[in-house]
Design a protein around this nucleic acid. Sequence first.
RNA 1: GUGGACGUAGCUCAGCUGGUAGAGUCCCGGAUUGUGAUUCCGGUCGUCGUGGGUUCGAGUCCCAUCGUUCACCCCA
Length: 490
Amino acid sequence: MALTPARTMPGVLELLPLDQIAFQRMLDTIRRNYERFGFLPVETPAIEFADVLLTKTGGETERQVYFVQSTGALDSTGEEAVRRMAALAAGSKADESMESLIQKMHKLAFPTPDLALRFDLTVPLARYVAEHERDLSFPFRRYQMQRVYRGERAQRGRFREFYQCDIDVIGKDSLSIRYDAELPAVIYSVFRELAIGPFTIQLNNRKLMRGYFESLGVADPEQQMLVLREVDKLDKRGADHVRDTLVGEGFGLSPAAVEKILAFVQVRSSSLQDAYDTLDALGAGPEALEQGRAELKEVLGLIHAFGVPETHYALNLSIARGLDYYTGTVYETTLNEHPQIGSICSGGRYENLAGQYTKSHLPGVGISIGLSRLYWQLREAGLVGTAQSTVDVLVTQMDESQLPAYLALAGELRAAGIATEVVLEGGKLGKQFKYADRAGIRFAVVLGEDELAKGVVTVKDLRRGDQFEVVRAELVKTLRVELEQAAAMG
RNA sequence: GUGGACGUAGCUCAGCUGGUAGAGUCCCGGAUUGUGAUUCCGGUCGUCGUGGGUUCGAGUCCCAUCGUUCACCCCA
């Protein structure tokens, strides 16, 4: 019989248990910090009605959405479609244009499935808030850590299924700019605890950028958006590339204007005072610029007040973000020692979150950690190793007749909060140690004839490679101390 | 969706100008009766992605197809 190859589709992150534990620890840390800052948990279904997910976006996103159809609803033979087309043709009025008939038939022949997988957590949040508006308290502060799906071609560090860990604050009618400063404070707290090395939360403001472009004669919002996208690539592609593109025919900007734009977006602040000075040095400009400048100054100052060290956040005027729904503050976070990894956390302010679902005006600000990518890239860079097992202790089986004693011992350890596994199958002691070692279990406990005679238990530390005896009654206490030390040393 | 590269043991790869497959690793077993990870010895594993063509003969050349991967677009 031919075997079916056991494989997953490319672009998914499937881990071995010890790696999964490391991943899970990161998730725990993020959740703990989100909750510590007063955000409430929300989960939404992976599958949503397709029309709900696709209302606003269209185009680019639609290409990346996975449509879902239950097998029963599939018209695999096309029979149903043909039947309906025949009925449509038979029932059509004589004066109906061929064009309109063709359009209707096309819809029947190529129906869009009713359901789709979410491609981010922001659109489902918008739907969620619109749907439960009456039951929520505003400003609504929610965190959400779930998998999202994007039907793009797999690439280095890009996934088709990945975790996003979002926090958003949604206001009713209005939302203070102060929240724009709170999110970086949360992120600072998360990344500091994740211990992933020095990082910088970089900030910019779209109003400031648009205002500056406007002052250079780029007044059309659409074109401003295109320029935004282009300068966003500065760090990745280099100034020459951006210059060529902006002077080129797609944009047709004057070389003088382009040079000014390039000088503008190359600004990076080195301290809070430097950021203030830099912003002031831009000089007077259109209203948008003034507004953006005021917002940025307030946000930067408040981040400082939130206790984030100046070394961990900075002004970066090239940060723009590709998504068009951001209207004010935008964020991107990078690791200082691994710039090639790119942004590991980003987001921004949006003027009206749920305009396509409700008439209520719901401005918000949000930020998201792409955990699958972050974890994967940290691992590539050798910054996270495999974790230890969730099992603390393995009780070995020296003597089958003593099994009840082993079970009792394990029960005692568990009652003390120590995760314990008992070897139930027996076998050579060497194999039992090998099993513990490979499974990432740090401690093994041996209770054989010798120990029983002496009233002690042997504890072996698989990692250090040494072992010692403890009086039976002292075992729990000793292991607790050992485990505490092990945890403290990482 | 557009363009390029590659497809040989579970994994990483070698196989020169065509002559019926190899290394490392992993896994399994052993190295005296209660000790893993280190060391030594031994062993399993492949219709060389698939289909067709050229040839006496193809992993090696040609075509197609599928798959993977990188870049672009866009993004976490």
